[in-house]
Nucleic acid binder design. Structure first.
Length: 282
DNA sequence: AAGCTCGGCAT
DNA sequence: ATGCCGAGCTT
């Protein structure tokens, strides 16, 4: 009986070895690009025992110390790295963890669709969700003061909660191109002004993140924040979450004409480049 | 002694 | 069902 069990587990471990070739390479530390540089991920398949086949995942910090749980990882990185949407098992940032995302699963989507692009890159464009979720169940008492008022109030209060200054959470993320030095900097136009209340020397990155996200995702016009001294004292009350964290933008006709000129120049440059390209190839 | 692996408790 | 960690086992 015992011999049969041994043969069985050997047989199973062989199957899992074969599966690992397709699914995931075993016993190999691999860099994890959802974590800071130098962090490695290791997945190990259990080969014997009652829990045979189970995948154990651990991480190694740049110093080589082993991290075995998300709790432990948070203890080490929580201050410096946003792990809200980090999935410990897969080592990737998972869109399904982001509140409000309703992505179709791969089975029901188009058969011809290519594999999803690196999800962690996409997520740098998604404004992070509110981080005040409590692990404890919070009791709620509904007080009915006026007859018939409750339903009406629920409807008007349905606005989604938002996090102010979520841009600060993108401070550790910077764009880079493979094989190039990652010293990306971008100067903003004169009319874009920091609100001067987000604090810190890295606020320019936050402003840029905020502005580019607004331009990329929102359909509303980007006009900036109404200038107010009270904003610095109480951003919760005076910050407009629909707008990027820059001062009120004053776009003059002159600026528009300047920009038109630059676009025209760029188009001419592109046309010339294409012309020489066609000439050279054809 | 350090690292690996699996059991088993907690959630 | 699954995350987490203790402890026995291996090197």
């Amino acid at each position: 009986m015992k011999i049969l069990g041994n043969i069985m587990s050997l047989f199973l471990s062989e199957i899992y070895k074969m599966m690992d070739i397709v699914v995931e390479r075993r016993n190999r530390r691999e860099p994890c690009n959802a974590l800071p540089a130098g962090w490695m991920r290791l997945a190990t398949r259990r080969e014997r025992g009652a829990s045979i086949g189970k995948l154990d995942v651990c991480y190694y910090n740049p110093a080589g110390r082993k991290i075995r749980s998300k709790a432990e990882l948070t203890k080490e990185l929580g201050e410096t790295w946003d792990l809200t949407n980090f999935d410990f098992m897969s080592g990737k940032i998972v869109t399904s963890l982001i509140k409000g995302s309703r992505r179709k699963d791969s089975k029901s989507s188009n058969k011809n669709a290519k594999a999803a692009p690196v999800i962690s890159d996409l997520n740098s464009l998604v404004p992070p969700i509110r981080q005040t979720a409590s692990i404890f169940k919070q009791p709620v008492t509904v007080m009915k003061t006026h007859k018939g008022d409750v339903r009406k109030n629920l409807k008007t209060d349905k606005e989604k909660p938002r996090q102010l200054f979520w841009e600060k959470r993108l401070n550790n993320i910077s764009p880079y191109h493979e094989g190039e030095e990652s010293d990306f900097t971008m100067s903003l136009p004169e009319i874009v002004k920091d609100l001067n209340c987000t604090g810190g020397s890295e606020s320019n990155a936050a402003v840029l993140a905020s502005l580019s996200t607004a331009l990329h995702l929102d359909k509303k016009p980007v006009v900036g924040q109404k200038s107010s001294d009270r904003l610095k004292e109480n951003p919760v009350a005076y910050l407009n979450p629909d707008q990027p964290i820059v001062g009120e933008l004053e776009v003059t006709d002159d600026l528009i004409r300047q920009q038109e000129k630059r676009v025209l120049q760029a188009r001419n440059k592109l046309a010339a480049a294409m012309k020489t390209l066609i000439h050279a190839s054809g």
